[in-house]
Nucleic acid binder design. Structure first.
Lengths: 338, 338
DNA sequence: GTGAAAGCGCTAACAA
DNA sequence: TTGTTAGCGCTTTCAC
């Protein structure tokens, strides 16, 4: 059986409370007493039972992080950042993935998978406002990655539209005139929708074609989706001189197809992605990409959860994390290695 | 305040026990009673307090998974698989990363980061037998990915040596004669050590040079490590006709450098890696790689933990997960697309 | 088949 | 400064 406070108290010949005081670094304990108790603790190898402590004070020290897909390096890198940010506050992270499916995202938001958590950070792909409006679960919820939720939840956003526009402008600045968009099925309020919008706005601002013929939608966000979409576009007879993909994996899949078809990147087709995943920095052609500040996102998200736990009773807050466009070979050519 | 069993009991006009019976699907409850209690539960929106339940029965429903680095897609993909495997048994997964650092791995193995877990799956990089021999933490520990631990812990291994030999043999079968090894600093019992050993054995069996001049050690397991190691080898005047890297990221980093130096893959240099990460399937040249069965590893690991939790009192078990060598363009050329 | 009550290990009032 | 005790919400004997 595991050793409890009582055992230590017995051993040290003091009361449970005194042991508890020592364990919790309570101020008013005489050094002599502290030493005596500490010795008993060491001898017995006592470790506090966190479950009991949490039953008592209502906290578990765990926050859940629910992401669409850990296999996507963007989310893996983000998860890493969240684990570190949480560790800085003595919190640990329970990880879940939703597959980006709406029902799963709803389940998670209602806490059906994890009833032990103090807070939840959710990065939704499909979830709509109305899916969350009936939320009854009490633990603080922080939303990630979107910008148009109109709900009473804290929200760490990135400015998808502005970022997409910056990427497209970069392509236009390089003299490209036929910029295709590759990316997940744009549905209302989803990241893909905002990124197409940015693409469309920037082209429109430049007086260029943003017709549907230049958009190749994908079912998902993986390499293979990008490869298929690119192939479809080319098979349809389009020969854009630039491609903006709604994430890096799609961009990399597209580059793969371009190379198979004998098209050079960036000479024939310039390619830009979104996420700045490590993978993009090591391909045969390094990938130009919009780079969200993942560490900042993680920090803000964790801070928001803890803030709510500390009883902050303020209106829902929307914070925007920084973004940088990192220009690499897929748009600038080899000279631009980075 | 959250609604508890007591509230439901009050509402339904029954005792706490009866409500508990209903919640836990206890057999002998009259349907009428069950319906009445269920109604109260629904009306009040009762959700069991898992912390209390766990304090009572000693389980938390959480297993921890500690991996070196989530940014490495192999581990991200493995984490995904473990989450799914655990979900199949109504367990959730607490994720931690160790950076592959020994002290951190020791801390995790002692449970210092997470005192709430029922079991721990640890994938060590640096940990040595003696680091674990003094382990006092009680929760079941399952080790991942190695094969030479001589400790009383269940262990899901892959046969690194055999896998490395198979990869090298493939390179030799293609007619290559100067096969370099790129990979993390080989230290005793670490995966890298076993993979160099396989490389060395297979070359020796073929009567070929396995001299130190063909080994380029790396500090870590990332793209940049592979890039640096490859550059160093070439700068030293070696011009191998094949490279076996101890993981895919190193292989991809190396391919990047080869291409910068104007060497073609696989015509000039054939490249094989280890892990079969998705990234390797979508580069300009797809990567031949040793593919461990990640789903099987996850399944076995979770099963081992649960087995121990169910009180299995058997000697430590060593299971070996399957491996396949996936041949792609980096050794076979474009004909072999896959 | 259902109820009463003890107790899991801990913390925090309150008492001494 | 330290000890006593109630109670967090649940499960589980043991009565009824």
């Amino acid at each position: 059986m595991r050793v409890s406070l009582k055992d230590v108290a017995l051993r040290a010949g003091v009361s449970i409370k005194t042991v508890s005081n020592v364990v919790n670094d309570y101020q008013h304990v005489t050094p002599a007493m502290r030493a005596r108790v500490q010795q008993a603790i060491d001898e017995l190898g006592y470790r506090p039972n966190v479950t009991a402590r949490h039953l008592r004070n209502g906290r578990t020290g765990i926050i859940a992080l629910a992401l669409p897909e850990l296999g996507n390096p963007y989310f893996a890198e983000l998860a890493s950042a969240v684990i570190d940010a949480a560790a800085g506050h003595d919190y640990i992270v329970l990880l879940d993935h939703t597959g980006g499916r709406r029902e799963q995202e709803m389940l998670v938001s209602q806490g059906f998978r994890a009833l032990v958590i103090d807070g939840l950070i959710l990065s939704p792909l499909e979830l709509a406002d109305e899916d969350l409006s009936g939320r009854t679960e009490q633990v603080p919820l922080v939303l990630l990655g979107e910008r148009h939720y109109d709900l009473p939840y804290d929200h760490i956003a990135i400015d998808n539209v502005a970022a997409a526009r910056a990427a497209v402008r970069h392509l236009l600045d390089l003299g490209r005139r036929e910029v295709a968009f590759l990316g997940a099925q744009p549905r209302r309020n989803r990241p893909a929708e905002l990124r197409v919008r940015g693409w469309r706005e920037e082209l429109a601002a430049a007086g260029l074609d943003a017709g549907e013929g230049l958009v190749a939608a994908t079912d998902g966000w993986g390499h293979e989706d990008g490869a298929r979409a690119m192939a479809r576009l080319l098979d349809a007879g389009r020969r854009p001189d630039a491609v903006f993909a709604s994430n890096d994996l799609i961009a990399i899949g597209a580059m793969r197809v371009l190379s198979e078809r004998g098209l050079r990147v960036p000479e024939d087709v310039a390619v830009a992605g979104f996420d700045d995943v490590v993978e993009g920095r090591y391909g045969a052609v390094t990938l130009t990409s919009v780079s969200p500040d993942k560490a900042a996102i993680a920090r803000m998200a964790v801070a928001s959860v803890l803030d709510r736990l500390d009883g902050a009773d303020r209106p829902a807050r929307r914070q925007t994390a920084g973004l940088t466009l990192i220009e690499r070979e897929s748009t600038r050519g080899r000279a631009a290695r980075g």
